[in-house]
């Protein structure tokens, strides 16, 4: 007898039996709406792809300022992703395992970076680092209009997405397994390291990928808090903005396609690796 559990279903399918004319019309209108939106998304990507050519992308990549921006984008997004997972794992674990006073409040605060307009996050960071405490930090590590500022601006938003994913991940893990580990001699910390965390591995990877993708595309907070100084704090989204502002649409589209490629790759990986449901 096998008790292997079936894979978690993403949604329930219902069998409707014989369909009448009105039912067919309803079904057709559902499909029409789906096709309209999916079509819009795909049409945008196709338009990008046909506007430019592989040669144009290669040409863009040969320009040193774009290469610098690409490097900084990859580096800063990777650091942001690692930091985000490092924060999201303990936060997600605590929220999924403990009830405490003010949990709803903490939970809501964690959603603020997702809901706030990106520009507002940039401005808030800018003002924060003008306070006495912020200035004291700047004396040790300069953030405003510097590379660490790029990472902090990305992290402020990306981490919130990683937290959501880790929380869903830990909530899907049966806490009784950690309880059993406690009776087997584990401290709470060891039950976490030996039992809960290995199970959360795929979720953590998905959280990291989402944070990475989010950080790669982050524009508003980076522009406001770290600026878009060529060769210094310019990241790929800033490149698109700068190229557009000088009227070079071809270069802007070429850079866009690099970002599209990265986003699609991450989306596919996250879907393959993710916990039951990845919240993005």
């Amino acid at each position: 007898m096998s008790t292997a559990r079936p894979r978690a279903r993403r949604g329930a399918t219902i069998h409707l039996g014989h369909l009448g004319g009105a039912d067919r019309l309803f079904g057709a209108s559902l499909w029409a709406v789906v096709l309209l939106y999916v079509g819009l998304v795909l049409a945008m990507l196709v338009a990008d792809a046909t506007y430019t050519s592989p040669a144009a992308i290669l040409e863009a990549l040969q320009r040193s300022e774009i290469r610098d921006a690409l490097e900084l984008s990859l580096l800063s997004s990777t650091i942001t992703a690692i930091l985000s997972v490092a924060f999201a794992v303990p936060i997600g674990y605590l929220l999924s395992r403990q009830e405490f006073r003010g949990k709803t409040l903490v939970d809501s605060v964690l959603d603020i970076p997702i809901l706030l307009p990106p520009m507002v996050i940039g401005i808030s960071l800018l003002i924060l680092f003008q306070t006495p405490a912020g200035r004291a930090v700047e004396k040790v590590v300069p953030f405003t209009f510097e590379v660490p500022g790029v990472i902090l601006a990305q992290f402020a938003v990306a981490c919130a997405f990683a937290v959501r994913t880790m929380r869903v991940t830990f909530e899907a893990i049966d806490p009784r397994r950690e309880a059993v580990a406690l009776t087997l001699g584990c401290s709470r910390a060891r039950a976490f390291w030996w039992v809960a965390l290995p199970e959360a591995g795929r979720g953590a990877l998905a959280a990291g990928l989402l944070a990475w993708a989010r950080a790669l595309g982050e524009f508003g907070p980076v522009l406001v808090f770290a600026g878009a100084t060529r060769g210094k704090t310019e990241v790929l989204p800033s490149t698109i903005f700068l190229e557009l502002s000088i009227g070079d649409l071809r270069a802007a589209v070429a850079v866009s396609l690099i970002l599209v490629g990265a986003a699609v790759a991450v989306l596919v990986l996250a879907r393959l690796l993710g916990p039951r449901r990845v919240t993005a």
């Binding site: 309880a179 059993v180 406690l182 009776t183 087997l184 001699g185 584990c186 401290s187």
Partner: peptide, 9 residues
């Protein structure tokens, strides 16, 4: 703590 009770569960 559960760990120090010397039982199996």
């Amino acid at each position: 703590r559960p760990a120090d009770r010397g039982l199996g569960y």
